[in-house]
């Protein structure tokens, strides 16, 4: 449900300010903008601490009227009430700054966690009714920007993101890869039957570039439309090692999640950007594996493998 103000995607902003450029997603967006040849100002915590008392003033001072702004800064995942309030404080600082120096276009990087759990298949029109603090945090921040920032506004809602630079160790591809690289078995909970959509961080960045070039307003999910079980993901990751890593089911740390599967209908992405296609998960996991191995100066042999 995006509307383009420039249907041919030919907008070339003077510059794009990325707030939260030091993070996993933010740095990928900066890279994506650089690849697209769009002048970019990367704002990380070193430039503006969004929790500081003078955050709005400092951020305002970095902005000029007409900037395109991507706001991706967050303390994620937000699991506690304190983290929720922290994130809202950061958003408020941004909203105050954007009200004072209105961007020509504001993009907020949100999350698919805002959707109600039983919306399968999820679309951009699915109800926003988060069941987690993390989802509520993003829903509230979307509302803050939509209400208070005086700018054409777009929201990108990625699902689970993977990439070589992902610092998080949550259950999923990145943890699986690290387990295997350490010579440990890849552990999946139960049978690993939960099916989820995973999107490469580079694809999130490519969508951001497209939305900027089209002057898009509205909401778009950054999801591939293909949901894969953790069992299958674990085996995809395992197969990238030589010899293949072992996948080992273990008891769940708690009850099986009430959200067993999540599927997406990505028709609106086909409609918004017909020639955009997501990297397929096996390809993306293999690419990430190669990138990590190259960065470490190692081959794809597991530590401890004989």
């Amino acid at each position: 449900m995006l509307t383009h103000t420039q249907s041919d995607g030919s907008l070339t902003p003077d510059r794009v300010v990325v707030v939260g450029a030091g993070g996993f997603v933010g740095s990928a967006i900066v890279n994506g903008l650089g690849t697209a040849g769009i002048p970019t100002v990367a704002v990380a915590r070193a430039q503006v601490d969004l929790l500081a008392a003078d955050a709005s003033e400092k951020l305002s001072a970095l902005l000029v009227p007409g900037d395109v702004v991507v706001f991706v800064s967050a303390v994620a995942p937000a699991k506690t009430s304190a983290q929720l309030l922290t994130n809202l404080t950061m958003a408020r600082a941004g909203a105050v700054a954007f009200a004072g120096v209105p961007p020509s276009h504001l993009l907020y990087i949100s999350s698919d966690a805002v959707y109600v759990d039983d919306a399968n298949p999820v679309t951009e029109a699915s109800p926003v009714a988060p069941s987690t603090i993390h989802g509520m945090m993003h829903a509230a921040r979307e509302l803050i920007f939509r209400t208070e920032a005086r700018a054409p506004f777009a929201v990108l809602r990625p699902t689970l993101i993977y990439g070589a630079a992902d610092p998080h160790g949550g259950y999923g591809p990145n943890r699986f890869r690290r387990q295997a690289a350490s010579g440990d078995p890849i552990t999946i909970f139960g049978e690993g039957e939960e099916r989820r959509d995973h999107v490469a961080v580079e694809d999130v960045a490519r969508l951001v570039v497209r939305m900027i070039r089209h002057g898009s307003v509205g909401v778009l999910n950054a999801v591939t439309g293909v949901s894969t079980s953790f069992h299958d993901i674990a085996h995809m990751v395992a197969a990238n090692f030589t010899p293949a890593a072992v996948v080992q089911p273990v008891s769940r740390p708690g009850p099986r999640p009430h959200l067993l599967h999540r599927f997406f209908d990505i028709t609106s992405c086909y409609q918004a950007f017909p020639d955009f296609h997501f990297e397929r998960l096996p390809d993306g996991l293999a690419r990430v594996h190669r990138e990590v191995a190259a960065a470490n100066g190692k081959g794809t042999v597991r530590v401890g493998a004989s």
Partner: peptide
């Protein structure tokens, strides 16, 4: 609305 776009999704 979902089924209307079957052909578009399948083509992609």
């Amino acid at each position: 609305a979902h089924r209307r776009n079957w052909a578009l999704r399948t083509l992609h």
